[in-house]
Amino acid sequence: MKKGIKYLLLLVASFFILERTSFLILDLLHQKSMYGESGGKINNLVKNHNKTEILFVGDSRNAFHVNPKYINNKCYNLSHNGMSIVFQTGLIDQLLTNEQLEIDTLCLHVTFKELNQIPKSQKLDIQFLKYYYNSNEWIKSEINKYLPKGKIKFFFPSFCWNGNVMSIISNGLKFKRQNDSNNGYSPKLPTINDSINVIYQQNQLNIITIDSSKNKLLENQMTNQNFKKYIYSVSQLNQIYISHIDSLCKKNKIVFICYTSPKYNRPYISDSSKFKVINYFKFKNILFLDYSNLYHQNSDFRNINIWNDVYHMNDSGATIFSKNLRKELNNY
């Protein structure tokens, strides 16, 4: 019994010391971090770009397609690779509610597919904002909704750094990556190993049979075969997220724009396929800029050399796309 109590007291004491110390060190490093997607980009925006004219928010396609330099010098690209609209909504809520960020226009990158339905696994993307769990009520409620036993896990404050430790350390210690810029844009520089080249080379030369179902799907879609015509809409859950962003923007007198970007050699999305989405944005009085068919409409985007893979353009593509976007944005 005596041994047990001694063990228990020592466990609690040593855990408390270790947990507090690691929490404080990581918190300090996180605050110092100005690069990367583990909060660094957000810190950079909040601390160095508090008065931003246009803020671009979205996933990797926003990250690689929009170079703020070509739009105006008061723009910031706040993208987080692979993050769904759940994450983006939480991020915007944090920026506008807690950080009191002053912006004129908010551009959110969306896709028809994602608007139609968010995959179940992507709802958990909100947990990548877990360092705001205790400071942001919206993020907290969403995490509790989707993260199993979230409330129990957050009993330990260090859990808010879960999964980000190494990036917080490297970013906090200012290990700046080659491609990091001050306006949030991370260019994808073209290389011969870009998957667009690899995939096309393999298809043309027929060297390897691509046997994974994912790539079979990709192959089919690239050759426009077996691709069913689909009528896209905005799912109920997405309507909630978009309405939340819209109300935050209205409250802060921010122009809210949603936009899509092109893909390489993917089927043309006809007006009849997307009319429900367009009508939704019309109804909500949200500006919707649709570039999903740019590949078919503008020959510049059919040049394989501006693409990194089917979904992402490289730096050259970003330059062309950003200039196009600037022209359009100048109209509003």
Partner: peptide, 10 residues
């Protein structure tokens, strides 16, 4: 316990 909290996949 701390390593599981910090690095564990959820």
């Amino acid at each position: 316990i701390l390593l599981i909290i910090l690095f564990g996949v959820n």
